[in-house]
Computed example of a mutant assay.
Amino acid sequence: MSIQNNVVGPVAAQGVSDPYGSLRNFEILKKLGNGHFSVVFSARNRFNKVCVALKKVELSQMADAKAIEDCKREISLLQQLNHPNVIKYISHFVEDNDLYIVLELASAGDLAQMIKHFTKSNKRLTEKTIWKFFSQICSGLEHMHSKRIMHRDIKPANIFVSAEGIVRLGDLGLGRFLGSETTSAYSMVGTPYYMSPERIRQQNDHGYDFRSDIWSLGCILYEMAALRSPFFGENLNLMLLRQKIEALDYTPLPAHIFSHELRHLIARCLVLDPDQRPYINEVNTVAQAMFARFVEQANANNNNTPTPSSRSDLACGSVTPVNNR
């Protein structure tokens, strides 16, 4: 069986009338990023003028069956998901021994770029903005978990923002479907700074489950506030990073800037024992309630005569550094 058939065979093939079913139907605009076997472009469809993200996967570079299975799994996972806070799958096709996955385009970039911009500008995200983004991330992840799908690589670079300010989880190439009879996964994949202790351990006979994603959420919530990963350190190798994570060696956020609820939720997510972490529905409930509270406060301020302090409270504030240890 050819590589092409091996990838596309188990997945419903696209019809010949599909406007997204061939590379010639697209105008490539620019390169957005690349992975080990893949590169992502922004592209415009020549028929309907819709701009999309076009992920090109070089099948010929995949010498082992596992990489092929990863491709098939990503398409299968994408087809199962339908949520405003998850990048939408549109189509896929194989051409010249390359797999192309057509995805919804989040044109405003990703959370990593946004954090980098705020860091360079010496500004911080207001807590209202943090909850606005985080509540959408949680909503998308709750949909994934309801479908028994772990993300396994939640990080700022995989959280995309549309021009309308809609936040979407993307890059599900490392996602893992867990059937109702399956409770744990075992492979070590993901980005180390956001990896849960049960995943980063080299010897872990118990595997990990959906609450590994909750740890990553805690890291994301912290980073949006502090503008750096809680476990960031200069010149850390994997062993030192693992020690730092297992020691919960991170500096708490300043209480005079961030709410008790934000700091408490981070602490609840960054717990070594996964059984002690909340499930996504509980995290999402807190996130939605906190965003609603800040919206209500903003509306109340707008109904009053603006003062310098109230204007400042709604704008981006100056960064208060979180001391490195």
Rank of each mutant, 00 (worst) to 15 (best):
M1F: 03
S2W: 09
I3F: 07
A13N: 13
D18M: 08
D18C: 14
Y20I: 02
R24K: 06
H36W: 06
S38C: 03
V39K: 03
A43K: 07
R44M: 10
R46D: 03
C51K: 13
L54R: 05
L54C: 01
K56Q: 15
E69F: 03
R73I: 03
S76Q: 13
Q79S: 14
H83F: 11
K88S: 15
S91M: 03
H92K: 10
H92A: 12
Y100Q: 03
I101V: 15
V102P: 09
V102T: 01
E104K: 03
L105G: 04
D110S: 05
Q113V: 11
I115N: 05
K120P: 06
S121G: 11
E127K: 11
K132C: 10
F133E: 04
F133V: 09
M144T: 04
I149K: 01
I149F: 12
H151K: 04
D153N: 02
P156V: 05
N158A: 11
F160N: 09
E164S: 14
R168D: 00
R168H: 04
L169T: 09
L169F: 06
D171I: 11
T182E: 14
M188K: 12
P192Q: 00
P192S: 03
P197A: 13
E198W: 11
R201E: 09
R201I: 02
N204R: 00
G207F: 08
D213P: 00
S216C: 06
S216Q: 09
E223W: 07
A226H: 05
P230T: 03
F232D: 05
N237E: 02
R242K: 09
K244T: 00
D249M: 03
Y250F: 14
S259W: 09
H264E: 15
L265T: 15
I266A: 01
A267V: 03
R268G: 01
Q276W: 10
I280D: 00
N281M: 14
N281S: 15
A287T: 02
F291M: 07
R293K: 14
V295A: 07
N299S: 13
N301Y: 07
G317D: 06
G317H: 08
N324Q: 13
R325A: 04
R325D: 12
